[in-house]
Design a protein around this nucleic acid. Structure first.
Lengths: 226, 226, 226, 226
DNA sequence: AATGAATGAGTATTCATTCAT
DNA sequence: AATGAATGAATACTCATTCAT
């Protein structure tokens, strides 16, 4: 009945003994979380089925409750995992070291690429919004994490203005909303958009063109006009 | 338990007798559809409860099936109704009669306002995307309807280029995607965005500023540079 | 939505006016009865759907209740119609005029053929037995009608015994049960029999052989042994 | 409301403790299956009520789905159980060890007795035929099981012919159909037959007489005539 | 740490029947 | 004589969760 690689039990695979310990709580937890990410992303919070998750897991439904307490607890754990990543990566860009224009360019491209590659992330944000973000608000570390982007952008804008490159009437929050919109929508709404116009806005063939367009639109928007 | 205003039966509401006819299929249908729009928009397709819809209706659950066949049939009818509106209104703008620049300006403002005012519409699109747009694809009239915006934009771009106002390297589909992104995201993802940054991007106080920003960003993007 | 030939309403078919009278109660009744026979025969009493019957009718569901009172009333009317036929035909055989052996021969062949041709009849009897024959027992004329076959067989046996052709220890009821068994089972249970043995016992290719077999078996059974 | 004897929980029935274990999947399954056999046999597939079955069970409706997946799944399991029995018992007769005539005699008597005693089985076959045997056809083991009787009869016929006892123009399939008809019909159609003629053909008082008649009819049919 | 069995409260849907015209 | 709209009580089935081992 069970699919996937069993995390435990006697085997004869020749894998070193640490890897086939009878009980590996960390791996079990991780395994549940990964399967749950797929299911919640694909089906939504209400649409996801605990049984469906358990079935694709190496373990049983009971363990899911053992580790995460409830369906909602598991969903929150998934959100936490998925949301943590983007902010971490953003900070790895070291945008502070670049000049304002190329810093912004880099940030936009990163944001574009991140959404383009992490469709599960995009779907989960979507799903959270259907639930009025009530689960994500409960994650303690959530707000802290996000503050960082705004600071990055504020810094970028200040430096750009100082260097005479950028307009001085732009709000960091607004600018991030714009970037986010342009990167998010083409992935999040690709299905209805695709259905409406017969073309998938997130199709790989369009990626380079849209990436350039988004960067272009943002840079034109911030550019100081003489 | 709270029943809406009964359309029929002896009442003391003072509503003129024609309005409380016992048999008024059109009104019954409409009533169900309106309540369903709210419920599906608020709860999603899987999260919505047929019982909850029926309860807030002037009629019984049975009639819901009588008119719409199934929960999914009702959901599709809701999508159909809601999606029909925006295209109808778009065409009422008579953008063809304006010059390219103000036509685009008008279209962007309309799109912004429409999303701003019709949150149910935005939520439903979101929900449809979680379901990979599989329900909307079944609506026969759907694709036809949407073609119109693209033609409007193509025309706008052609006229703008001819008048020397617009760049000549812009694709109508891409441009609509951009407009849509900027108008949709701030409404659709207001909850997670709000949770992340402590500010609701669709808050009325920000509306005017964002409206101007979106128009500005789009016009700068299409503007021919000398 | 409606299939079938409409019994009423303005038409331009050129059919003489009597045939397209606006209201033809007799035809409406007959039409409902015929459709119901098919549905009950195909689906059983519990399996049959009033809506399904009404839909295949020239009229509406309401008329079904108008004429037959209830689903069960309609079912009883179907039974009555269908059961009436066989006894009527049996009497048309004028078996009393033949000598005992050929009379029995004729009766068996008739019974065989009747079941072979009237599968709806066979199915309905089957269905009635699942309901412990409680509906057929309510049909007033039912018992009277059946008495006739037993008298026919009694007469046949008496004459056969008198003529030295038949054994004298056979009961008419038993003999009819035997004949009935041999003619009924191959039709009634053709599906499970077919599934079990890969051959349909009521297949036309087997008909002649089985017809001869049944006649043969019965005649051997009654035959006086020296 | 009337619950059967609970297999679990604190009780005061004096049943030894092993018999009222809280977790006994095999017993739970069996219990459901037995109750379902009665219900399906009495009411038919469509007429049977899942709730009615659950109520007479030691467990809840949920377990019915846990073990059998659906009402139809349960119905199939019932068919499987019930059909399995007759073939098993047939083979226990060891007819191959008897001479042709007494072998056939034994087989007919067994078949007669089996149908006479197992009315649920007979009813269920009847019900399956109303459904065109579509459920029984899905049981994998079904066809295999049945092949055995035909081989038994073929062997019997061959030996009887070789011994000069039997005619040589009889097909095993036909002969089994005859036997089956004579044993099945009197049970299956006892209600309509009873209603029609005022006598129940399966009444115990008639059993011995009909049993002899059936054996007699079959043996006369196969007997070689000089 | 891990598990198969068990459960109650829901959940979408159907059905025979009747109402108002 | 005929009809489209309306209904309440059922009906099969599902779901997240917990028990006993």
């Amino acid at each position: 009945m069970k699919k996937g690689i069993k995390a435990a039990g006697p085997d004869h695979t020749g894998i070193p003994s640490e890897a086939r310990r009878k009980y590996d709580p960390e791996q079990t937890r991780r395994n549940i979380l990964d399967v749950a990410t797929e299911e919640f992303s694909a089906m939504g919070l209400t649409g996801a089925r605990v049984d469906a998750i358990a079935e694709r897991t190496n373990t049983t439904k009971r363990m899911l409750y053992y580790y995460f307490g409830s369906k909602e607890g598991l969903y929150e754990a998934v959100l936490d995992k998925v949301y943590g990543d983007i902010r971490t990566h953003e900070q790895d860009l070291n945008i502070g070291e670049l000049d304002a224009r190329s810093g912004l360019h880099t940030l936009v491209e990163f944001t574009f690429d991140y959404h383009d590659k992490n469709r599960d992330f995009v779907r989960l944000i979507n799903i959270e919004n259907i639930h009025d973000a009530k689960y994500i608000e409960q994650l303690k570390t959530f707000k802290q994490r996000n503050a960082s982007v705004l600071r990055t952008i504020e810094d970028l804008l200040a430096r750009g203005v100082a260097a005479g490159q950028f307009r001085d009437d732009i709000d960091a929050f607004d600018l991030y909303l714009m970037i986010s919109s342009l990167c998010f929508h083409r992935v999040a709404n690709r299905h209805t958009f695709g259905a409406a116009f017969g073309r998938d806005p997130s199709h790989p063939r369009l990626r380079a063109r849209h990436r350039a367009m988004v960067v272009d639109a943002v840079l034109r928007f911030v550019k100081r006009e003489d």
